[in-house]
Nucleic acid binder design. Structure first.
Lengths: 300, 300
DNA sequence: TTGTAAGCGTTATCAC
DNA sequence: GTGATAACGCTTACAA
């Protein structure tokens, strides 16, 4: 059996409430007793039972991050950054993954209403897009924050990259590389994808470029793998590739690759702080927060 | 405020203990009352307070997975597989990430002794290798299981791929491709790396191959990125590349790439079941469990 | 079939 | 400064 406050109280000949206070530095008590308590607590290897503490305080000092899967950098980079940022604030971050499974997804959202965490960072997936469970959770006032993708209509802060600016930059780079048209691999699979699609079309118009036709072509997309696949399948030889986050290996022949990184660390930190605001004061700026992207990197 | 058993009891004119039993299908009680209780619970949106339940039962039906970082497939693939497997067994999986930080690492291990989870799957990192906190945790009899990497000397089940056989297979493929020597990129960074290094050397001897000299060369390693870098830096043109888990893109000129996948899903499932054994019966086979690798894939 | 009551390990509000 | 004492919300014998 684990040591409890009672064991320490018995060993020190005092009351459990005194031990509790001593161990939390709360209240004023004689230095002598305090030291004795702390010493025996250490000797007995005392660890507070968090279930009991949570029950009485109603708070867990724990934040969950809900994620569909962890493969993508857009999922695990924010997780890592938020974990260390929140740790510094005295909170533990736990990542819950539902892997596209509706039942698991809903169960995890349900858990949040059961005193297992004080708030949650949501990396929205397609499941969230019409999730009754998520709407219900948000309706209770439970503190949530979206990172990167979000669900329109749910009143919670959203932290994203400055996607419009980033896409405009990529299109400008495409034009500078001599492209007269572009293959656009952004779609409408989520809010980020959608925003990039719209921003890219707008920027193309500004540069007098078109989506199809003849002449030197650029490829713009989110993901290296997808871009490579399309190039192979359709035999495209672009003069420029614009891609988010990363490109492994060298640039293809006669082609400039422009990589637009995203600052997931800042995104996670801003999101964490917004969440802490909501958790601690129940007040929250529920709008959109755009994190500037680092300078683009040119390969080849 | 959230609805509690008392609210339902009041609404139904019965006792909280009756509500508790009705909601868990425990005990026998009149169908009428049971239905009324269930209906009002649903109407009031009742969700059991898990902190309270954990306190009284001493169990959380939660498993933690401890991971250094989530970038590598060896980290997130087991996480995803274990999450869905454990969900089916009535447990929630939460991933805790310490990102190479000693303080965070120890704090998370400490949490496990504080009734936040019933057991843990450990993806051992360099921090665990001489972690006093991990040794202390294991010494308490807290149920843990290692997946992939492990910490020698800690009495807990270890689930790995059949690395010896896999390495022997890669060396055989190298020989078949005409290689007379091999550049080995396995090191001694962790237990898996080490095991592969030894197994590969042994297999090379069996095939009469050497680590350096002249003649057609093979490169054997864990990671595509590392292999590509070494090839570039040292200007090596291998006749065969043996790599674990994945190779993106085509094979280099005049080179066969043999990819040896690992079955992380099975590994995670076996590990989960071993952990459940330990958690539920406190009995456990503490040895090594090797999961066969899927057939190797040949590219080029 | 249902109610009573004890208790899980803490924290917090009082007295003294 | 320190000790009773009452919660927190739930489960679980044991009575009735």
């Amino acid at each position: 059996m684990a040591t409890t406050l009672r064991d320490i109280a018995a060993a020190c000949g005092c009351d459990t409430s005194t031990v509790s206070r001593a161990l939390r530095g709360d209240g004023r008590l004689s230095a002598d007793l305090r030291d004795r308590i702390i010493a025996t607590a250490a000797r007995l290897g005392y660890r507070p039972n968090l279930a009991a503490r949570h029950l009485v305080t109603g708070r867990t000092r724990t934040v969950w991050m809900l994620s569909g899967g962890l493969e993508a950098p857009t999922d695990h980079l924010p997780a890592i950054a938020a974990a260390s940022h929140l740790r510094g604030r005295g909170y533990d971050l736990l990542v819950a993954v539902h892997q596209g499974d509706r039942e698991g997804h809903d169960r995890l959202l349900g858990r949040m209403r059961q005193q297992v965490c004080d708030g949650a960072i949501i990396l929205a997936s397609h499941l969230d897009q019409d999730s009754h469970a998520l709407v219900a959770l948000a309706a209770t006032g439970f503190p949530i924050v979206f990172v990167d993708r979000h669900v329109p209509g749910i009143p919670a802060p959203v932290v994203t990259s400055a996607n419009k600016a980033a896409c405009a930059g990529l299109v400008a780079a495409a034009a500078a590389a001599g492209a007269q048209r572009a293959v656009i691999l952004f779609g409408r699979r989520n809010t980020v994808d959608s925003e990039r699609l719209d921003a890219t079309h707008a920027a193309l118009r500004d540069h007098g470029m078109v989506a199809d036709g003849r002449g030197p072509v650029a490829i713009l997309g989110q993901d290296e793998q997808v871009i490579r696949r399309i190039m192979d399948q359709q035999g495209i030889h672009p003069c420029m590739i614009g891609v988010f986050d990363r490109w492994t290996g060298p640039a293809p022949q006669d082609c400039t690759v422009v990589v637009q990184p995203q600052d997931f660390t800042s995104m996670a930190e801003v999101a964490s702080d917004l969440l802490l605001d909501r958790m601690e004061q129940h007040v929250a700026p529920s709008g959109k927060h755009e994190i500037p992207c680092p300078a683009a990197i040119r390969i080849g």
